[in-house]
Amino acid sequence: MLVLVALPMVMRNPYYLGIMVFMGIYSLITIGLSLLMGYAGQISLGHAAFFATGAYTSGILTTKAHLSPLPAFLAAIVLTACIAFLIGIPTLRLKGHYLAMATLGFGQIVYVALNASVDFTGGPSGFGEIPRIALGNLVVESQLARYCLVWALVVIVLLFSLNLIHSRVGRALRSIHSSELAANAMGVNTSKYKIQVFVLSAIYASIAGSLYAHFVTFISPGSFDLEFSILLVTMVVVGGMANVWGALLGTVLLTLLPEFLRGFKDYDILIYGSTLLLIMIFMPEGLFGLVKKLRSVRGRM
């Protein structure tokens, strides 16, 4: 927490703050995904679609219906939650790769729809002029203001999620992860919990999407493609699925890595791929697994 507050004082440069802003936006989604993947054991390759729902709902309502950002933001959350609920019921009955394919398919359908409904979404060329977030006279325009807003939300979402994990729901989720059959037998309503956490993670993604729309002020389907869904899952797995902090760590790494690699020109793609590979080969539990191991080694000494 201290670091978060201290950071902007050290790093005034809007370039770095800008990267931190995107990092915060991604963190919102990956925290939710880690609840879904790490705790409930369900994979989703379609979360870009919920990010898109948030961004497009906010974008369209504020530019075309001239709503102010806050009600649009809430509308986005409600809409995303409804979609996630409806999709979740049949989808979460599937398992393993079938679930992966179903969520991926859903994400692609949304992507195709964004491209095809030109009158509504602007089609493949997207649309711009999305207003910035304003609280009274205070317009969130500078990178610093954005930074504060995003990371404040990240902290809220994080605290909420940590609380959830240590509650009854969290225990139920973990029981689903270790064995859904056993959990069911013990009287845990597994499908209810799975859908709840799915909807929650979708809501997080929607919040992130709304922020993205208002910050970048221009959206097009390209930002919400399968590649982005895969990037999100990669962040969670690389960081370490077993823990929300792991997801955060993965997000930090994979947001910074491409910026670090700018100097390497075209070779960045090779270095990026190798880094992922090495992490997964040598730290199958993700970065956070390593952190945990180091700690236990220290503890033993």
Partner: peptide, 15 residues
């Protein structure tokens, strides 16, 4: 704390 520590390490590298 470990999480925060790692976070700050990365940011130091950034700067």
């Amino acid at each position: 704390w470990m999480g925060l520590f790692c976070l700050s390490m990365f940011l130091l590298m950034l700067i």
